[in-house]
Design a binder for these strands. Structure first.
Lengths: 150, 150
DNA sequence: AAATAAGTTCATTAATTTCTGAACTTAATG
DNA sequence: CATTAAGTTCAGAAATTAATGAACTTATTT
């Protein structure tokens, strides 16, 4: 097993730990460790020795997550993939989304709570305030980064 | 199905979506929507109609994630569970951890890249810089919150 | 110290997710 | 317009993960 093969498996396992298909992580691992920007479907298939179905499904998963992007060249029917540069945005977007989703869950829980003066209710209210704070602050980090880098 | 039962299932599905056991989400749902701070093992079992093994395993999962905490009363052999107030800290800790883990993965990928002048290498270097930035900034959000709330 | 209660462990079963491979679609090329 | 290439779809197989339930541990009570 080469260094690169080991690395690809490592990214696969990382992805799996977060409840996502190992193959998606492997594809990401390929693209990160690749010296080129132009990895085709076939390329990935050769490196990963996986079925077309699995490569296809997981490429589309990563495209939907905006972790990778597709680019094409006219006169060439293949599509090529690379790590998405806008993954910077998407990292934070995904984080904000998960914060928002949990904020909504907390709110719903509080709303159906029959005893709005209980200690439990108050504790959860505090947590909810924190989530509201995060929901505002996380996107601001992106803005801070942009300012700093121009 | 009561409002509360529906809610509990919803939190279960939310948890499942993030690759965690549905039962862990259900337990969280119970604790969020409960009017008391004192939900015992037995309590959860009654509400969720699940096996002892599943309740036990998932309580311990949530305890390890610091999402819930255990408290006891002397003269009572039961343990009681509630949403952890320090989950505020843990939310950010978990986020920082996932950022750090991915930063390490990106670094490794760059290190094994044979062409350190390629476009791909440079793009990923930029993403890496952003991760380094986030790794510093995310814990600072917690500090900002603390300042604001005292 | 026997009985009981609270919770854990773990082998088996059940449910879910992912992968494969073959048939299919779409579009470009000769 | 037939052929080929690129990729998608989807039913079934394989692999993984979660839940069950019974036996077990630990600690408390009578």
């Amino acid at each position: 097993m080469t260094e690169k093969e080991k690395y690809i498996e490592e990214v696969g396992i990382f992805y799996e730990k977060y409840g996502l298909p190992k193959m998606a992580g492997r594809i990401l691992g390929c693209l990160i460790s690749s010296e080129t920007d132009n990895n085709s479907f076939e390329n990935l298939r050769d490196i990963l020795k996986a079925s077309k179905g699995s490569i296809s499904g997981n490429i589309n998963l990563l495209l939907n997550q905006n972790m990778i992007e597709k680019h094409t060249i006219s006169g060439d029917r293949k599509s090529y993939y690379r790590i998405a540069m806008n993954s910077l945005e998407n990292i934070m977007e995904a984080k904000t989304k998960s914060v928002t989703e949990f904020r909504i869950i907390l709110e719903k829980g509080l709303n159906i709570n029959p005893n709005q003066n209980s200690l439990n209710f108050n504790n959860i209210s505090d947590i909810l305030d924190y989530y509201n704070f995060l929901e505002i602050e996380i996107p601001l980090l992106r803005v801070k980064w942009e300012k700093r880098n121009k």
